[in-house]
Amino acid sequence: MSRLDTASHPTPARRGIIGDSMIVLVRELRPVVREPFSLIFGLVQPLVFLGLFGPLLAGSVGGGVPGADVWQWFVPGILVMITLFGCSTTGANLQMEMQTGAHERLLVTPLSRSSQLTGRSLKEMAPLVVQALIVVLVMIPFGFAPNPAGAALGLALLAVLGVGLGSLSYALALAVRKQEWMFWAVQQTVLFPAMILSGLLLPLDTGPRWMQVAALANPLTYVVDAERSLFAGDILSSTAAWGAVAALLTAVLGLAVGIRAIHRSTD
């Protein structure tokens, strides 16, 4: 009887972390597919910056922008801003799931906890690339001329950075789950200094020396410079290489911190 039962009901094969991560990835992407308007809504702020801040930048410091082409300098920075704003707030979604109990229900499933973090983080790649691609296409008629190969590598670099930022955001949400307001306090405190000190909106070459030194310690600085280099076609430059290193280290750090945080979550 036991052999018959075993033959009739075989033990399901273990999927491993990759298979589990794909299951979580599909689960996380379903709301985005059902409500694609959220992707468009996330572009409002970047498009406002492009429409209002871009011409202002051209009129004030256009000649001082490296390369003397404002859009070639500014658009890649805005793409990094999309990544920064979008992925750093994803922990808020996890907070909502913790409030409704969905997160706790997911923890007791056969899915490994590591895959629950990696699947969520990988989910950030798809919306991010779609939004960045829309911005690039919108700006081409206005004079933005990206190198095709460099643009593809630039989008891939943003995806890697997004995985790291998303993982850190999820880790922060788990760490402050009993004090939800703390998530936004930490996120805002880190977000804006990191953005300003990366040279994303304005060149730091004419800024005070202390800002230039602080920018060197900011990983986002290297990613922003790499995006500008890649979209200009300087694929093999050292600037692009350092940006890839910074994005990869951010992804590794984010995944390590996030996986540790979710393993420490209580059932």
Results as ranks from 00 to 15, higher is better:
A240L: 00
M139V: 12
T206K: 14
V33P: 08
S38I: 15
W184S: 15
A171L: 07
A156T: 09
T221M: 05
L230Q: 00
I140F: 00
T250D: 07
G254S: 08
T89S: 15
L165M: 07
A132I: 04
R264Q: 12
C87M: 08
M195S: 13
M1Y: 11
S229A: 15
L220F: 10
A92Q: 12
M98Q: 14
A151I: 06
V252N: 06
V252G: 08
L155S: 03
G143T: 04
L56S: 09
L133E: 06
F37Y: 15
G154R: 01
K123C: 11
H103C: 12
V48A: 09
V24N: 07
A159T: 08
V257A: 09
R105Q: 15
V61Y: 02
A217L: 14
V33W: 10
V70D: 01
V70L: 08
A92D: 12
W242K: 09
A175C: 13
K178C: 13
L255P: 05
V136Q: 01
A152D: 09
A126S: 06
H263Q: 14
G63H: 11
G67L: 09
V108C: 09
L161G: 03
A214P: 10
A217P: 11
L79P: 08
L236D: 13
V129K: 00
L165E: 01
D234F: 06
L161P: 04
I235G: 02
S115I: 07
A214N: 07
D225K: 06
M98D: 13
L117E: 04
T206M: 10
R264S: 11
S38L: 13
P12G: 03
L255D: 02
L107N: 10
Q179C: 12
L201P: 04
V160A: 00
L137Q: 07
E180L: 14
G233S: 10
A226Q: 02
R105S: 14
G59M: 03
